[in-house]
Simulated scan of single mutants.
Amino acid sequence: MISKRIVFAAIFVAMTVPRFANAEGNMPIIIPERLQELAFKYPIADRLDINWNNAQPDDIGRYLGFLASVAVVAEEIGKQNNRSAPSDEDFVAAIGIQCIFPPNKPPLVESSWPAQVPAFYNEGVRNAIRAAVGPEAVALPAQLEKSGPDAYPTAFEGLPTTSDQYFDKVFNVNKLPGAQ
């Protein structure tokens, strides 16, 4: 399919750009291959209103930017759980706290997705995303591991359902520049 080739080409380009720490910090990041594989299992493109059969360059940018944000969340969750690299459960937790999964989860952070897209190239946004990760997000991977992949949705049932509590304990989108 031509549309999937476009996505893979864009991801390949993103992966081949070196990740350097410079004074400005505004360099593209590498999206982990494992996250890319997991992303196909969840309705990320659907939730971002992307139709791969009719994808436009802006769609690819939104997708890669969103995956970059998810990668940053997963890295922060893994780091706070003393892991040098994110586990599958860290990635699934990051996808879930972004209100992509499970399907019945209230879309509490959806309005912040456009503000997260610059995570692909902007270190300031990545730092704000790291600071937005709350203690209940950090605790999710252990619950996911305990429940197992077939029961992942049950691990998200205990998360707060009001925006104030969610932002306080799970993912505080108010810390993101440009988020409402």
Rank of each mutant, 00 (worst) to 15 (best):
residue 2 I to M: 14
residue 5 R to Y: 05
residue 8 F to G: 01
residue 13 V to P: 07
residue 17 V to S: 01
residue 18 P to F: 09
residue 18 P to I: 10
residue 19 R to V: 14
residue 23 A to C: 02
residue 26 N to G: 07
residue 31 I to F: 07
residue 36 Q to H: 00
residue 37 E to G: 08
residue 41 K to A: 14
residue 42 Y to K: 05
residue 50 I to P: 09
residue 55 A to T: 09
residue 56 Q to S: 07
residue 57 P to H: 03
residue 57 P to V: 15
residue 58 D to S: 04
residue 61 G to D: 05
residue 61 G to V: 14
residue 62 R to H: 10
residue 62 R to G: 04
residue 64 L to A: 11
residue 64 L to C: 02
residue 66 F to G: 10
residue 67 L to N: 03
residue 68 A to M: 09
residue 72 V to M: 09
residue 76 E to C: 04
residue 79 K to H: 09
residue 80 Q to G: 00
residue 84 S to G: 15
residue 86 P to A: 02
residue 90 D to A: 03
residue 91 F to R: 00
residue 91 F to L: 08
residue 94 A to K: 04
residue 95 I to T: 11
residue 95 I to A: 13
residue 100 I to L: 14
residue 100 I to P: 10
residue 103 P to Y: 11
residue 104 N to G: 05
residue 109 V to K: 01
residue 111 S to E: 14
residue 112 S to G: 13
residue 115 A to Y: 03
residue 115 A to M: 02
residue 116 Q to H: 06
residue 117 V to D: 04
residue 121 Y to I: 15
residue 121 Y to V: 15
residue 122 N to Q: 10
residue 124 G to D: 07
residue 125 V to I: 12
residue 126 R to G: 02
residue 130 R to F: 14
residue 135 P to L: 01
residue 138 V to M: 05
residue 138 V to C: 07
residue 139 A to M: 03
residue 141 P to W: 05
residue 146 K to N: 05
residue 154 T to S: 15
residue 156 F to Q: 06
residue 156 F to G: 00
residue 157 E to K: 10
residue 159 L to N: 05
residue 164 D to E: 15
residue 167 F to D: 14
residue 168 D to A: 15
residue 169 K to F: 13
residue 170 V to W: 12
residue 172 N to F: 13
residue 176 L to K: 07
residue 177 P to D: 06
residue 178 G to I: 10
residue 178 G to D: 09
residue 180 Q to H: 07
residue 180 Q to T: 01
